[in-house]
Write a protein that binds this DNA or RNA. Structure first.
Lengths: 185, 185
DNA sequence: ACAATTTACTTGACATCTAAACTATCGACG
DNA sequence: CGTCGATAGTTTAGATGTCAAGTAAATTGT
């Protein structure tokens, strides 16, 4: 528990003037995959490919959200959850649904609240509890983004037929269930 | 370009004393998935499921790396790349392979170097360039972790048969190719 | 009733990551 | 040569994320 503690603040980023600073994908992204050893377990190969693919999609969505709407993926994701639950969601619920820690949700909610896109409401039955809702402004902003976002995803997944998507979805569902079962410690 | 700028440092985290602070998975993680709208496009459903599944695996691997070896996923990933390339890799190469920005690689390399696990070497032919290698200590540390890591992945993906893994791998390969082609701007 | 535990959220320290600006070197070309 | 653009790394600012600890309110057990 010590090795991770002796570190300061070594962030950073790359590239020249008004050009780079991005982890360029495209023809370069081929290497997480290869040479795991020809006979290596399929589990490992599948895992690396899932990671690569997910990263590619995420990077592209993040880039577009920034360029088109000047926002970020986690903000969009939080708002997306709220949009589906007009009655509001507890911080705990948001944390669970977004699969991030409560502290993280606090931070993002703080920002969105400051920008007037969401509001915190107190629960009369439980004064510890907080109900987060989209404000009208937040809903308006989200609705515009959501349309574009869905189109982007459909476009990015256009490389697979409906049937392929459906089968993959089904397999990943099985995998997800296995994970939930076996990680239920 | 302003909405993202008026923010301070609002991090955080949750939970009580020596217990939580974690985005608990298990029986909770069911919600990114549902209610995207019954008729919603398969692309979106598949995307959300990929995200959920990848997050579950990543969280578990991160937890185990921390508990068993007191290290983190990005450190492990960087070392894994070096292990496959004993001759050393340039910072640029690492950035490309890990699909993160150069600045990020600088930070992680700084830490690993400080811990004596990797070393930076200068290139006589190009004084801008740096060749990062595992040190003997780094290789030793990595080899021990790699065995456990692979077993973990095999275990986590044990929910799918070899054939299912193989088919999913193949589909994701197709998707990956589509992404690389269509994002090649 | 009331101490002990649990639950809901926040805070603080720090790690990870991006984007953009900066430094230094390389390479091409007049 | 000299300079101009491209390339390799680093740095900086700031967002996102974890983990652990802290506060306060609700629940539980007796």
């Amino acid at each position: 528990m010590t090795k991770l503690s002796n570190l300061k603040k070594t962030t950073t980023a790359d590239a020249k003037p008004p050009r780079k600073g991005v982890a360029k994908p495209a023809e370069n992204v081929v290497d997480l995959e290869m040479s795991t050893g020809a006979d290596s377990h399929m589990g490992l190969r599948l895992w690396l490919r899932m990671l690569t693919t997910t990263n590619l999609v995420q990077a592209e969505l993040r880039k577009r959200l920034r360029n088109e709407f000047d926002t970020t993926l986690p903000r969009f994701d939080l708002m997306a959850q709220l949009e589906r639950h007009p009655e509001g969601l507890k911080m705990t619920e948001l944390s669970r649904r977004l699969m991030v820690t409560g502290g993280n949700v606090t931070g993002i909610t703080d920002q969105l609240e400051k920008e007037g896109l969401v509001s915190r409401g107190t629960d009369p039955n439980d004064r510890r509890s907080i109900s987060v809702c989209l404000t009208p402004a937040g809903r308006k902003a989200f609705d515009k983004m959501a349309i574009a976002h869905e189109q982007w995803v459909v476009e990015l997944f256009g490389g697979l037929s409906l049937d392929e998507k459906s089968r993959t979805h089904q397999r990943l569902g099985k995998l997800k269930q296995h994970l939930l079962d076996s990680l239920k410690d």
